[in-house]
Nucleic acid binder design. Sequence first.
DNA 1: CGGCATCCCAGATGATACTG
DNA 2: CAGTATCATCTGGGATGCCG
Lengths: 119, 119
Amino acid sequence: MNMAGIDAMCPERLLMEHVTSRWGTLVLIALLDRAHRFSELRREIGVVSEKMLAQTLRTLERDGLVHRDAKPVIPPRVDYSLTVLGHEAAEQVRGLARWTERRMAAVERAREAYDATRP
Amino acid sequence: MNMAGIDAMCPERLLMEHVTSRWGTLVLIALLDRAHRFSELRREIGVVSEKMLAQTLRTLERDGLVHRDAKPVIPPRVDYSLTVLGHEAAEQVRGLARWTERRMAAVERAREAYDATRP
DNA sequence: CGGCATCCCAGATGATACTG
DNA sequence: CAGTATCATCTGGGATGCCG
């Protein structure tokens, strides 16, 4: 265990991987805006397979970050929203996302400088 | 492109994957404390292969987050430290890490409740 | 000591088809 | 509409060996 209390395979790291996973981040950020139906999330996220979206939502629901509200109607309607816990997670993730936006240009300059100095 | 300006394969997402990757997070948090040699990072992180640590460090260096200082001595000595950009990234990541520590117990209760309601 | 090159595999992800 | 099931593919990551 290192100084931050996070090691390679501790429970905290697994939770962190759920919220920072490719689809986890996009789901959390989309839900930070408002509740979404399954198909709305698919459209908003862009290209994501049904399987991965369903799997991601189930993981986040199990962790208590996302609330699933399945209405007993035909055709089915399922709404996903953030819990209080999920809202906190989403804000952390959004902070990271916003940082990447602010600093993307600087990072790309750094890459060009790095690449320019070698084969 | 969704509302957060982040989609599945944009440059921002790649950058985010670098900083939130399994080894990226641990390296950034370790360097937030102080500069480390390669072998110090290996020990501090715990179980990490040389390959992944080297690869992670190269990626973070290329992104301009980590500074690599190779001293021309024998035996070789290489020190890694955070750049200003890297310090910002590391603080975001540490924020996420601290959140997982604060909320881990609540998440585990949520999982038990979830698991208790099905096969 | 601090790497890089190679091979290999489990697990993550995608594609497609099917269902309540 | 909102999934599940199955099969195929891709890739992060470990193991090993070599080198300046």
